[in-house]
Design a protein around this nucleic acid. Sequence first.
DNA 1: GCGCTTATTATACGCTTGTATGAATCGTGC
DNA 2: GCACGATTCATACAAGCGTATAATAAGCGC
Lengths: 202, 202
Amino acid sequence: MKPAAERLLDAAETLFADYGYNGVSVRQIVERARVNLGAVPYHFGTKENLFKQALYRRAVPLRIERETLIRQLNQNGKSPSLEDVLWALLEPALRTSHENDSFRKLLGRASMDPAPEVRKLMTEIYNPDFLFVPKELRKACAHLPNEVFYWRLNCFYGVMLFVLADTGKIQTIAGKNFDTSSTEKALEHIIPFLAAGFRAPV
Amino acid sequence: MKPAAERLLDAAETLFADYGYNGVSVRQIVERARVNLGAVPYHFGTKENLFKQALYRRAVPLRIERETLIRQLNQNGKSPSLEDVLWALLEPALRTSHENDSFRKLLGRASMDPAPEVRKLMTEIYNPDFLFVPKELRKACAHLPNEVFYWRLNCFYGVMLFVLADTGKIQTIAGKNFDTSSTEKALEHIIPFLAAGFRAPV
DNA sequence: GCGCTTATTATACGCTTGTATGAATCGTGC
DNA sequence: GCACGATTCATACAAGCGTATAATAAGCGC
């Protein structure tokens, strides 16, 4: 059996993803993890820190992988295409997430969670991305005026987060046989959409 | 001074928009509304119903307005352009919302709130849209295969909700002088992006 | 197999939560 | 100006919350 701290992280990941930070109590987490209530103060101190660790456990490696991918793309000599950049930005998140449904949702939903504790953590962990992601996209869209670029970047984030969060809205409309579980298929559809959007005439 | 029930709805709208359903207590709402605690059970019964009424108060008129706009578009004889349909679908939500920041956020964020109570209400109120919105967009994108269309519809919802929710992410990146408060400007940038995405070659 | 660190347990504390209720107050038709 | 329905009020309740802690158990180098 996994150690208690790890089982707590697993349970926290799933529950926070499904019900949000304020929708889950510490007692619900320990019950799912089959762990004593005192284990939370012992291993993590506070609920907020448990949430933070559950997020960091996967988000930090993911961020590093994304940066590595982009670096490789740039090392190839010539400047990468818009599609390549979009792919490098989206693929790690989508793949990690499709290997692990809970974390995909957690990442997507936490990015939109208005709770101050969550917002604080998200800007903390994604401040490096705040500088990195736009910079790479900017290079691939050098011709766009600033204002236009930022509005389109806004659209990019919207699409990315909505796909990650996986609210099931599309299934409700398209029916159960519509499949969103394949990373390749998701990228195959999303990237052309976004690329066309970024390339739209001003 | 406004009656207590209305002030409760106003306070609920703002607070739920900023902190989420589970991030706000009834006591915080009555304090902001300058109303006695007992007024909530008296006028609304439960917290959940207060949330529901705060949502319905503006969401129902908005939905009706959207449907009217689309109907007018179709009455003009020839079938409307993709841009026209996108405009009719987005404009009421964005305008209502820019006249009332709280409700914009509330609508966008509630759409992504994972709390079961919220999900229940959102599908309840937006079931008519679930049939309506896609049908209109589908007509304007008749050439797309089903699977492609639904993935692009997914992107559409992502963009719409992210713009509504207004998380401030773009300001963090683009700086304070980047303005998202103008409805016209928002539509002017979002619609070409989405239209190009829907028109991307398969 | 003793000793010491690390982990787990049961339990308790003070506080906040949503909701309920009976008494006080208000507004208004007569 | 009084009576009566509609509202507002202070207060109470049980349940759940996050966190703390002292006692117990387990792991392990020696």
